[in-house]
Write a protein that binds this DNA or RNA. Structure first.
Lengths: 245, 245
DNA sequence: TGCGAAAATTGATTTGCGTCAAGGAAATCA
DNA sequence: TGATTTCCTTGACGCAAATCAATTTTCGCA
């Protein structure tokens, strides 16, 4: 759901101050950026714009933490945000990263509860926010927004359930192999995967340790399925083989 | 989201042929049963009723399987349905059970994809179905339905992510303890938990084996945190202790 | 009520992987 | 650019939990 310079600012409406890298600096960009809003008419976007409030977070600051009341929708306009959870026993698990165009606020937006996860800005970040009550009114007024949000939620749910099943049933080696394959699907141009995060984060995301990731990658390399080109780059040599790890 | 005899058929609209156990046999019951619809006006429910088609599945039949196009919303009116997945390596993982009032159709309802899970009737079951296109029209016409579905989805997503984190970070013993506590929250009247499924299913749900469940329960009993009254009944003796397992 | 099948328990064994510890590579900052 | 910190890798070890196998218990059905 991230946005590149081709797809940014392509609606008829005015969109000032776009940067060369495709991100827009003004508040308005939040609306035109995100799939849940950018299908609307310019006039409707203007209306939504009047509701949003722009906030900035410095690297390291939390947008929300567990226990915080969840009454705000956050739309990322610049920067990078890490969503993670602490388990009952205190271990951290990475859920996802948010890039410009992504949103968070989660369930709590629709039921009156508190957050259970952390949202931490890992770069200096600016977000657009809408309160729950205003967002609910928007959903009632423009039902097509709901369909977009439902689509996004159902996709996340599918992903999450798939991840759950993998944790419940697959070995670490298999989880790593499947992750590589999914990275390849996204890039898909070459056979080379660029790992989108550090080993530490990847370990947290896959429910294992950096040590195990390192070891398993070496093992997979030794049987000829991949080649570790550099720290972050991995060449897939045998896709079918990987699928059967 | 299951429904008992107190809460069934309590709207002003007519609702014929209700059974003593609270389930209704006629098509209409599907609509009045489910939280996503039962807040509507009687006239609106009638309109929806005209769209639904009632289907019956015998015990063991699948409502859908992975690869099936997902273009139908299923609302359970009678019976019990098991949603489960097969991992890439072929192991089964239980996702959830559906009881009267619950619905499925998942993500696929909002993005044009195929199912990834199995939905199997484990009792003789009757469901009400609506096609995707008709359901989408309903959502656009009655935006309040979207809010209900969003609320349900976000709740499921929260649950799923919590489960993912547990699998990723907690030991089997802890997962079992947390499961018992959540069962207690639902019953909550006494300190006695009635396991809602077989050991086999529980193992599948918790990402472990029946052997491990059996062993761990015995261990937890030996340190005095619980008492195994019978096969399916467990008495919680020390809730705080369980939380720290 | 009793039989047979399925489910649950218990034991013995194996193994995957986390933990701890140390050395090397890479990134960050002045 | 060099120094310091953080990250990654490799090795040795221990443990949690899966697997395999054999009873025992429970439950569905005749």
């Amino acid at each position: 759901m991230s946005v590149d310079s081709e797809t940014t600012c392509n609606h008829k409406h005015q969109c000032h101050h776009c940067n060369s890298d495709g991100t827009c600096m003004d508040d308005e960009s939040c609306i035109s950026l995100v799939p849940i809003f950018n299908h609307l008419e310019p006039a409707q976007m203007d209306e939504i714009m009047s509701l949003i409030r722009s906030l900035k977070f410095k690297r390291g600051e939390n947008l929300y933490s567990p226990g915080d009341p969840a009454n705000t929708l956050y739309i990322v306009s610049e920067g990078k945000i890490k969503i993670y959870r602490l388990s009952e026993s205190g271990k951290e698990q990475l859920i996802r990263f948010l890039r410009p165009g992504d949103f968070t606020g989660e369930l709590a937006l629709f039921s009156d509860t508190v957050h259970e996860a952390y949202a931490e800005a890992i770069e200096d970040t600016s977000v657009c926010t809408i309160t729950r009550s205003e967002f609910n009114e928007l959903l009632l007024k423009y039902p097509s927004i709901s369909l977009k949000v439902l689509s996004e939620f159902s996709h996340r749910l599918e992903q999450s359930e798939k991840q759950t099943t993998r944790f419940a049933t697959e070995r670490v080696e298999t989880r790593i192999a499947l992750f590589l394959i999914e990275c390849l699907d996204r890039d898909s141009k070459s056979q080379i995967v660029e790992l989108p995060m550090s080993m530490r984060d990847l370990a947290s995301y896959l429910g294992t340790t950096p040590e195990s990731i390192s070891r398993k990658l070496t093992e997979i390399e030794e049987v000829g399925l991949i080649e570790q080109i550099s720290n972050k780059k991995i060449k897939i040599l045998d896709l079918d083989g990987l699928l059967n790890v």
